[in-house]
């Protein structure tokens, strides 16, 4: 488990860096476009490029938020349950929720394959869009991986609780 966790941290770090880099690139793209616009120099491809940059920004942000446990949830019921049951419920909910992202990743794969088949190109700039569609798939797969590891962690913790009879930190 340790090794998997360390490996996961490594991958998430790379993913998060990609997302961050794209957000910053998005900012500079707009700033440069606006500044050059003021002196009459045109960048017709700005919107195309911005839309493409959004794909890694948003999809890796989803994985990073999951890794940081930042996805909004309600702890109304779980806070009332005994710790072991609460952990079990957490694991179950996370596992079920993962199903949705698996669907997203699968749907994204179908779209990426179609894009490759059709040799989809970005308008105006003409570069291939398919790699960016794969990026979405990679990021969502990473999200699924993060969630699966969290499910396993939660399950392991219920075992710990069982063994020690109480939670070490709550």
């Amino acid at each position: 488990m340790r090794i998997i966790e360390r490996l996961l941290r490594g991958i998430v770090t790379v993913g998060a860096f990609t997302g961050v880099a794209c957000i910053i690139a998005l900012m500079f793209l707009t700033v440069v476009t606006v500044s050059f616009r003021a002196i009459g120099i045109a960048f017709p491809g700005t919107y195309t490029l911005a839309e493409i940059l959004l794909i890694p920004s948003i999809s890796f942000s989803l994985a990073y938020a999951a890794y940081e446990g930042a996805h909004t949830r309600v702890e109304l019921v779980t806070s009332l349950l005994p710790p072991r049951l609460a952990r079990l419920l957490d694991a179950l909910m996370l596992a079920l929720g993962t199903v949705f992202w698996v669907v997203v990743a699968y749907a994204g794969t179908l779209e990426a394959l179609k894009s490759a088949r059709n040799q989809e190109q970005a308008p105006i700039l003409g570069f291939p869009v398919t790699p960016f569609r794969w990026m979405l798939v990679i990021a969502i797969s990473l999200l699924c991986l993060v969630l699966v590891v969290q499910v396993v962690q939660a399950l392991l913790r219920t075992r710990q609780i069982e063994e020690t009879g109480e939670e070490s930190q709550s």
Binding site: H71, T72, R73, V74, E75, L76, V77, T78, L89, D90, L92, M93, L94, L96, G97, T98, F100, W101
Partner: peptide, 8 residues
């Protein structure tokens, strides 16, 4: 209510 992230 059972704690699944809202978006999920």
């Amino acid at each position: 209510a059972f704690g699944m992230p809202i978006g999920f």
